[in-house]
């Protein structure tokens, strides 16, 4: 369990990192390293060079930028977990972060690292997809934005251009008095990989109907999915339990779910319907200022 030899470069800014990445085909960027280091220990990854971006101070921040909360790529997950600003502006993210690994891995693991790693079961990609986050990418001296929906391409595969580095994630902030969120996941032990995860955020109107709704499901398909058809069906309704269940069941009816040793495709599909339903109902109750139902 020892990594193969590699060169180590600690860089001071992101352009230096991009330049190094461009000159060395076998180079990889290391942020928190909580996935990459075990992969290297097992020699499933053998980078020739590690470009350590942990010391780039300009990549670690949480700040409001207009109508979005921007989080720098190397911001530790533990920092997000403790952030009052995140709790206030992105309650869905605040809900999900404690489910990422455990405290010791969140202390090192970064927001950008988890997103760039694109594990289908990871919480951060799910929240990014659900909230329509935008990824800010730097490469070749240029900065560009990629929408979360266009970023994830397959399990551990992203649309990040070659030689580019994820610099920040912008999560749109919903404003209003009746915003509610729900998050659920099922795994063998808390802190393990999710077999299924589901997230929902709703904005309710004073008359009790739903103004806006976003629903995401993770760990079931190659990358987290949005339940667009259920969102369309539920918008404008009071989000009654039966209507929610029906809309979610329909949205997940035809999917081809992942299957592995731990969970069959049918199990994943069945549980996804349950968890997404619960997440939406929780979000509705939360928006109305009521405690979550006992499901």
């Amino acid at each position: 369990m020892k990594a193969a030899p590699f060169e180590y470069s600690r860089v001071a800014d992101i352009d230096e990192a991009c330049a190094l990445l461009a000159t060395d085909d076998g180079a990889r960027v290391i942020a928190g390293g909580q996935t990459l280091v075990p992969m290297m220990a097992m020699r499933l990854a053998r980078p020739t060079r590690l470009i350590d971006i942990n010391r780039i101070a300009a990549l670690s921040y949480i700040r409001l930028e207009d109508d979005a909360l921007a989080i720098g790529a190397t911001t530790r997950q533990s920092l997000v977990e403790r952030s009052a600003l995140v709790k206030e502006t992105l309650p869905l993210l605040a809900h999900a972060v404690p489910h990422i690994g455990h405290a010791a891995t969140r202390a090192r693991g970064t927001v950008g690292g988890s997103i760039a790693n694109a594990d289908p079961a990871a919480e951060l990609p799910l929240i990014a997809i659900t909230l329509d986050a935008t990824f800010n990418v730097r490469g070749g001296g240029k900065t560009s934005d990629i929408a979360a929906r266009d970023f994830f391409v397959g399990p551990m595969v992203t649309a990040l251009p070659e030689g580019a580095i994820l610099a920040a994630v912008r999560f749109p902030v919903w404003r209003g008095d009746r915003i509610g969120v729900g998050f659920h996941e099922v795994n063998a032990r808390r802190s393990d990989f999710a077999f299924v995860s589901a997230a929902a955020q709703v904005a309710m109107k004073a008359d009790g109907t739903c103004e806006r709704i976003a629903i995401g499901v993770g760990a079931v398909t190659d990358f987290p999915m949005r339940l667009d058809s259920a969102e369309q069906a539920l918008q404008g309704t009071a989000l009654d339990d039966d209507a929610v269940r029906a809309a979610v069941s329909q949205a997940l009816a035809g999917i081809e779910a992942l299957e592995d040793l731990h969970a069959s495709a049918t199990y994943r599909q069945r549980v996804a319907i349950k968890l997404a339903t619960r997440a939406i109902i929780d979000a509705r109750e939360h928006a109305h200022g009521r405690p979550p139902h006992a499901h």
Binding site: A3, R10, G33, A41, L50, S78, A104, T105, A107, R108
Partner: peptide, 12 residues
């Protein structure tokens, strides 16, 4: 903070 020392290279 408690971290795993096997998940970090000494140089870091």
């Amino acid at each position: 903070e408690a971290v795993r020392s096997c998940l970090m290279f000494a140089a870091q």
